[in-house]
Design a protein around this nucleic acid. Structure first.
Length: 431
RNA sequence: UCCGCAGUAGCUCAACGGUAGAGCGUCCGGCUGUUAACCGGAGGGUUGGGGGUUCGAAUCCCUCCUGCGGAGCCA
């Protein structure tokens, strides 16, 4: 007799094994009890047949409430009537803890109730599948960069000043000084690019904006590559190659999860094929105006406008060369038109919005200094950042990708709150 | 911050001015192949808080609280 994980059982037909897990559901029919167990690797129908077990085992099985923790010993058997085609014929059963009144029953629940019980909600099939996709995506991201020679540079979470000077930051006390939770690792990555060439950071970021939409969290994860000597055109290629490979990877490795989430994967297939449409900001404005949107040249796009632009091809769309004044202070001006920035946003299809924002960075000390002044940023706080243009300035580019929006897109979710184990939302900090 | 919508049994909802109900969960009973099993029975409520209108309020009005959706901003 050996311990086994549920996912291994199709390879263990006829063997006697012990499975440890939790009671997911139970059905009974006279002298038969069907215990549905979960152990994190899968779901198993365990059959308890009264004539073949001791009275103790039978009674213990009867007492089990939903989510009781237990172990069972029995023989693995193939049976077409069992979900998954494999079941366990129970011989012995041990209760580890008898659970009563588990709040999340196999029926439907409201969002507020589920969010209050997020720590228990994680056990449900759907949440389990989503977080597996997230895990696979994060691994694929690290593999993508690592295999291409990028060095992982962890940027700080506690920072002395605003990175971009725009978003509202969470403020905290740092031994009598003010400190802020990082809203981006990018500025800290640029010096590291001068040290290592190709670098990336991957960690949590924080925005204190009182945003209340299905695309926003107060705490979210962002991966940000930064590459020395990379120009804008190459940055577009990198972003495209990155997303195409990630989508292909998830389609390949998360088939079971996407099926459980009832994701129509045919809608993701186009994104594995390069190139993606690239639309100049000016053309995007014209397209939107032709569709009846009230945008003017110089405006930033709202959610509806983004959706309209991305829905044409079924692929992510890259909008390029935004007006400089609606973009961050550190973005390199377009040499053909300095009023525009060498900036790109990648918009995911199906209304999932902006998943990537990136740019070539300003190389000139004087220009950067001027931009810091124009944005009313505290110059002293940015001296270290200016130093990068003083001691061996170099062209470089990078982008940031929001993990939760990508997971929401890949899984076909209504809201990003399900894509992170413990979402931090406006007015919700529990559990 | 602004604009909508909603708070009724543990959960999801119905009743919309006249005795507060159902399904699920729970408990008890039945069933040798169930698939969110099924069948029978039982228990379960100051209708989010406060105030008002009315003979009478879950229902209409005011207010506060909580949640949800959207906008702005962004990933």
């Amino acid at each position: 007799m050996r311990d086994a994980e549920i996912r291994q059982l199709p390879q263990l037909i006829g063997e006697e094994v012990r499975i440890r897990g939790w009671l997911f559901n139970k059905r009974s029919s006279g002298k038969l009890q069907f215990l549905i167990l979960r152990d994190g690797t899968g779901y198993l129908q365990a059959l308890v047949f009264k004539p073949e077990v001791s009275d103790q085992v039978w009674e213990d099985a009867e007492r089990l409430g939903q989510e009781s923790s237990l172990w069972v010993v029995g023989t693995v058997r193939q049976d077409t009537r069992a979900p998954g085609g494999v079941e366990l014929v129970v011989r012995q059963l041990g209760i580890v803890q008898l659970c009563q009144d588990f709040p999340i029953t196999p029926k439907e629940h409201g969002v507020a109730f589920l969010m209050d019980h997020r720590h228990l909600w994680l056990r449900s099939r759907r949440q389990h599948a989503i977080l597996r996709v997230r895990s696979e995506l994060c691994f694929a991201i690290r593999e993508f960069f690592h295999s291409r020679g990028y060095v992982l540079i962890d940027s700080p979470i506690l920072t002395p000043a605003a990175c971009e000077g725009t978003s509202t930051l969470f403020e905290t006390d740092y031994f009598g000084e003010k400190a802020y939770l990082s809203q981006s690792g990018q500025l800290y990555l640029e010096p590291a690019a001068a040290a290592h060439g190709k670098v990336y950071c991957f960690g949590p970021t924080f925005r204190a904006e009182k945003s209340k939409t299905r695309r926003h969290l107060m705490e979210f994860w962002m991966v940000e590559p930064e590459v020395a000597w990379m120009r804008f055109a190459e940055l577009l290629d990198l972003a495209e190659e990155f997303v195409a490979e990630l989508v292909a990877r998830i389609l390949d490795r998360c088939q079971e999860e996407l099926k459980r989430l009832e994701r129509d994967t045919s809608k993701l297939e186009p994104a594995t094929q390069r190139p993606y449409p690239r639309i100049d900001y000016a053309d995007a404005v014209a397209k939107l105006q032709a569709k009846g949107f009230a945008v003017q040249f110089g405006d930033d796009f709202g959610g509806d406008e983004e959706t309209a632009l991305a829905d044409e091809s079924g692929k992510p769309v890259m909008i390029t060369r935004y007006p400089a004044h609606i973009k961050a202070f550190y973005m390199e001006p377009d040499p053909e038109d300095p009023s525009r920035a060498l900036a790109v946003d990648m918009i995911a299809p199906e209304g999932y919005g902006e998943i990537i924002g990136g740019s070539e960075r300003i190389g000139s000390y004087e220009l950067l200094e001027q931009r810091i002044r124009e944005h009313n940023l505290p110059r002293e706080a940015f001296q270290w950042y200016l130093d990068i243009r003083k001691y061996g300035a170099f062209p470089h580019s990078g982008f940031g990708m929001g993990i939760e929006r990508v997971v929401a897109w890949l899984c076909g979710l209504e809201h990003v709150r399900e894509t992170i184990p413990y979402p931090r939302m406006l007015y919700r900090l529990y559990p």
